[in-house]
Design a protein around this nucleic acid. Structure first.
Length: 668
RNA sequence: GGUGGCGUAGCUCAGCUGGCAGAGCAGUGGAAUCAUAAUCCACGGGUCAGGGGUUCGACUCCCUUCGCCACCA
């Protein structure tokens, strides 16, 4: 058997956040790591989804081309995954020319087989942006309630569903221009032809998760309609028909074909360009798509129909779709920046605690809530206190009482036998759970093994038997060492970084999953270290307030490319200023009220440097100030400008000119 | 608006085909001292969102109201 595992292609208009991880990436990675250990022939394929209107819009807003936008995000996404320990065999992207060819060939094949038909439709077109506008990119007054901000698909105020043409005074959301109605030809995929085949195929998937099955049943009951697969855009995979000049494929058509092209890309990079066929053309291959629930219809209905229409590739075997992750009791929202971004997380914490906190509470059955309090408690009370402490107490005991020599297992007793048996049962249970996509329960079982270790250690009381019954004490430690050796293997899919540390501690080499049932135990302990650092309780409050400030400020697309043009930079008026006076603002530790001299004028500004600088220390110094910043009132004190300083955590350093200049001098 | 899902202990979640309500964390009491004051033992705690129905028996099946979510048009 071969396994071809995919995770939904992340859309390259933003970074990865916790919702993505919990839905499609972490469970897939755990599943794949387990299978790699087991020796299964498995490949794990993913890549950035780089086409579609949202990307063209985001690019336009940032003043760059779509290609520049995806070139910015693709590597960021890729790196975040790597740092988090998500190990794809290939993380590709849909802007590759290889992908273009694959999509076009795929299309031509289903076109030849008669599953594509052209149809003339009427759409709104913006003459200034020179493009047809998707529903969501038209705004206007709602014909039923008069709300002036109704979107082309729905009026948010009265909830009425709309057609873009129904809007009164429609305007293009990008440039504000009034769009006109134009006729255009689009090509449709004849999804309706596949109703019977899909029904039969789905009926055989008796073991699929009920959430997936119910979605599909609902769709089939309603009847399938043909879907347009082309758009009038310049960004995307061109439609390879002479009469379709200037049209590209709809992103939902090209993206899943990315699973195929990314596999081809993988094969090429290995120097075996035909290797991908061993998977995609092989009926012995199980194709597993990890996705979030928003993608179910697509992966369980449309994509299989596309594959049936093409008729050469295998169909999905498993679609373990997850529900959604909420944050602190509310929906996460990227547009309001109410999200936890993976790169932000990784800049502060190690990957494994998050992998664990997410794995133990995956949205497998329903939407689930991620809270920082839970993360904190999982890290401190479970990873550090149960798992970390078990390993540590055994290691320290062996070091201190046995000079680091691990006693070998000789003789036995009912307790020890029982513990080993329970541990072996856990290994077998985890196997069944992971293979049945019950990752959450599997993670619980993993922690359970450490808890069993603690219980055994306590009951055996080696600190007493060491002098009273040495043989018994030897046995206890031998069994504990054995449990740690097992833990090294079974933690690997969930906590790969920790597992590697344990391996170093026990000088363990490469092993397979099955070795966990009867693991080797070395005779000597290596360097030991604390596996999990406890986190202070303050982080709960800090992280929570970060979330709230993100959404309150209504910062839109915080994560847009940081590239700006020289013109934008020139808008910032930077000047050298001399600090005339400074005083603390009562009731704050960080804030200073400064009067600065800008040559022609004096100004009052508030600066958050009070922890690093006393008022006396800044008076008489030259500093750099943004003078054309909107005035703000901070703690009741007005501020007309902003002081520049280098800030790294608590360390704050003022930016000052290398030599004194006339106050008011421009900085460029 | 249509379709589907969810609502279970203070918190986060399990409960397959109806048969005495579960886990982890938090809480309370005790034991132990090898360990990152980490562990172990015991205990308390729920009108299973509200209402109605089917049944000997309903968290589970049916209807309905409320709240939340997803998808579709």
């Amino acid at each position: 058997m071969k396994l071809l595992v995919t995770s939904a292609l992340p859309y390259a208009n933003g970074e990865i956040h916790l919702g993505h991880l919990a839905g499609a990436y972490l469970p897939a990675d755990i599943y794949v790591k387990y299978h790699r250990l087991k020796g299964t022939d498995v490949i794990f394929i993913c890549g950035s989804d780089e086409h579609g209107v949202p990307i063209t819009i985001a690019a336009q807003r940032a003043g760059i081309s779509p290609k520049e936008l995806v070139d910015y995000y693709h590597p960021l996404i890729k790196q975040s995954f790597e740092k988090f320990g998500i190990e794809f065999d290939n993380y590709s992207r849909t802007s590759l020319s290889l992908h273009y060819q694959t999509v076009q060939n795929f299309f031509l094949q289903i076109y030849r087989r008669g599953f594509i038909t052209p149809k003339t439709t009427s759409q709104l077109y913006c003459p200034r942006c020179k493009m047809f506008l998707a529903d969501r990119y038209v705004e206007g007054a709602c014909p039923s309630c008069g709300n002036n901000e109704a979107r082309g698909d729905q009026c948010e105020q009265c909830g009425k569903w709309l057609e873009p043409f129904e809007l009164i005074d429609p305007r293009c959301k990008i440039c504000g221009m009034t769009p006109e109605r134009r006729e255009t030809v689009h090509w449709f995929f004849r999804l309706s032809q596949f109703e019977t085949n899909l029904r039969t195929w789905l009926a055989s998937k008796t073991h699929w998760k009920p959430n997936v099955m119910r979605f599909c049943e609902g769709w089939l009951k309603r009847g399938l309609v043909d879907r347009p697969i082309t758009r009038d855009l310049s960004w995307g995979v061109p439609v390879p028909l002479p009469e379709a000049k200037g049209k590209v494929f709809y992103v939902w058509f090209d993206a899943p074909i990315g699973y195929i092209s990314a596999t081809q890309d993988w094969a090429e990079s290995l120097g075996k360009p035909d290797l991908w066929k061993d998977y995609w053309f092989n009926p012995q291959t199980k194709l597993v798509h990890f996705i979030g629930k928003d993608n179910i219809v697509f992966h369980a209905i449309v994509w299989p129909a596309m594959l049936m229409a093409h008729d050469e590739f295998i169909l999905p075997s498993e679609i373990p779709a997850n529900e959604f992750l909420n944050l602190e009791g509310a929906k996460l929202s990227t547009s309001r920046n109410r999200a936890i971004w993976l790169s932000d997380y990784l800049s502060q914490y190690p990957p494994d605690p998050l992998r664990y906190a997410l794995a133990i509470n995956l949205p497998e059955n329903r939407d689930v809530d991620f809270t920082w309090a839970d993360f904190h408690s999982r890290n401190n009370n479970e990873l550090a206190d149960i798992l970390g402490n078990f390993i540590n107490r055994v290691a320290v005991f062996i070091k201190r009482y046995y000079c680091g020599k691990i006693p070998q297992l000789t003789g036995t007793d009912p307790d020890s036998e029982n513990v080993i048996k329970m541990a072996q049962e856990i290994v077998l249970r985890i196997e069944g759970l992971i293979e049945g996509f019950q990752i959450k329960d599997a993670a619980r079982e993993m922690m359970n093994l450490a808890a069993i270790g603690n219980r055994y250690f306590d009951h055996s009381a080696p600190w007493r038997t060491f002098s009273a019954d040495r043989a018994q004490c030897d046995r206890t430690m031998a069994v504990c060492a054995r449990l740690i050796s097992m833990l090294e293997i079974i933690t690997y899919p969930f906590l790969p970084f920790t597992s590697r540390k344990i391996a170093k501690m026990l000088h363990l080499g490469k092993r397979s999953w099955h070795d966990a049932l009867n693991p080797v135990v070395p005779s000597e302990l290596g360097e030991t270290e604390i596996l999990f650092q406890k986190l202070p309780e303050e982080i709960i409050i800090q992280e929570r307030s970060k979330l709230e400030s993100g959404s309150d400020n209504n910062v839109k697309n915080k994560k847009e490319p940081s590239m700006i043009s020289i013109e934008e930079f020139k808008k910032i008026d930077l000047r050298v200023a001399l600090v005339k006076s400074a005083e603390r603002i009562p009731g704050t530790s960080k804030l200073l009220k400064l009067i600065i001299d800008l040559g022609k004028e004096e100004r009052q500004i508030v600066a958050g440097i009070g922890e690093a600088y006393s008022p006396e220390a800044v008076v008489g110094k030259q500093v750099v100030v943004v003078v054309n910043l909107q005035p703000a009132t901070i703690r009741g004190v007005e501020s007309f400008g902003m002081l520049l300083a280098a800030v790294d955590g608590k360390q704050v350093a003022l930016i000052r000119p290398d030599q004194d200049v006339t106050p008011g001098t421009t900085v460029t």
